[in-house]
């Protein structure tokens, strides 16, 4: 187990390093000078020079990369060019919205998908299975931002029960804050739930064909009991993989969904920073997002080991 953990940690650190250099060099080799990109075409010569000095563009590229890495490790993400506040502060303000949003929709989609997948698999080829598959196909086909608009039309325009956008802020209290996150959470969760339902179902059906399922039944375990006690845990391995992958889709989803609902979160921040060419914010945000994806994948790998004893690297007798 320790060796397994150690190996995975090393791979994770290498991936993080590669990710950071890709982000850095892609933004670096872009046509034109970052300072000019940030200031736009009409920039004055001396403003440009000042910004270049501030960005350290006069130093060699390797020095700048290492300097950036060093700052990152120390938690110093620089100062946003457009907002004129530390990037870390900017991110913290936004994370308190985006993180709960992502986690809530992950929870919601899991709560929908796993029971639906189990229902479909245990009623394989029956009407119930067919209904669940229709739901899943529709959920995959419907773009989440359109679903968000439909939710707004129904709950805000017609019913008038939930806000159409904006965020009340946590300081306004749990109820207003959560009610402004409710529709975004549902909109984000739908496509995830649709995919996860499908994966749960097919994974369960696959596992139900395994020899050890027949063994369990030969011991007198009923089909229902076999499904819960023997199949489910084995079927969770691909499900957890997809959940890990979905996290990165969730991050992308927040960009669009936060724009639909005018929520001041990470997704909207990155979108605005790109639009305003605030490369310092872009660079640090992208690497942080990439890092969170990588860390999530690491956690997923750890979860595998919890689910599947074969991965714990235990010795043979």
């Amino acid at each position: 187990m320790k060796i397994f953990l150690f190996k995975r940690l090393i791979t994770m650190i290498i991936t993080l390093l590669v990710a950071s250099s890709v982000v850095f060099f892609v933004l670096e080799i872009l046509p034109g000078d970052p300072a000019a990109v940030m200031l736009g075409i009409n920039a004055e010569a001396d403003t440009l020079a000042a910004l270049r000095a501030e960005l350290g563009l006069d130093k060699p590229i390797a020095v700048r990369y290492l300097g950036w890495l060093g700052d990152l490790v120390q938690g110093d993400l620089g100062i946003s060019y457009t907002y004129d506040v530390p990037v870390s502060e900017l991110i913290m303000e936004r994370v308190i919205l985006s993180f709960p949003l992502a986690v809530l929709s992950m929870i919601l989609s899991t709560l929908i998908a796993i029971p639906l997948g189990i229902i479909a698999a245990s009623n394989h080829s029956k009407p119930m299975d067919f209904l669940v598959m229709i739901f899943s196909q529709l959920g995959i086909a419907i773009p989440n931002f359109w679903f968000a608009l439909l939710l707004i039309i129904f709950f805000s325009v017609f019913m008038g029960v939930l806000p159409a956008g904006g965020f009340a802020g946590w300081e306004a209290g749990m109820i207003p804050a959560l009610s402004s996150l409710l529709l975004p959470t549902i909109a984000l969760a739908l496509p995830q739930a649709a995919i996860l339902t499908r994966v749960t179902r097919s994974s369960l059906l696959e596992v139900l064909k395994e020899d050890y399922i027949r063994t369990a039944q030969a011991k007198g375990s009923s089909l229902r009991r076999t499904l819960w006690r023997h199949a489910l845990r084995n079927a969770m391995i691909p499900v957890v993989t997809i959940m890990g992958l979905q996290f990165s889709f969730l991050l992308a989803g927040t960009i669009i969904i936060e724009n639909v609902f005018y929520l001041p979160g990470i997704g909207r921040l990155i979108f605005q920073a790109i639009a305003q060419r605030d490369l310092i914010v872009v660079k640090n945000l992208v690497i942080l997002l990439a890092a969170s994806v990588i860390v999530i994948n690491f956690i997923v790998d750890m979860l595998y080991a919890v689910i599947d004893p074969r991965l714990r690297g235990t010795q043979n007798v």
Partner: peptide
Amino acid sequence: RIRGNKIGMIFQEPMTALNPV
């Protein structure tokens, strides 16, 4: 109530007939 109780069964493939988890 018969399976495993009145009739026990041993399968061919010991590699796959046991639940790995």
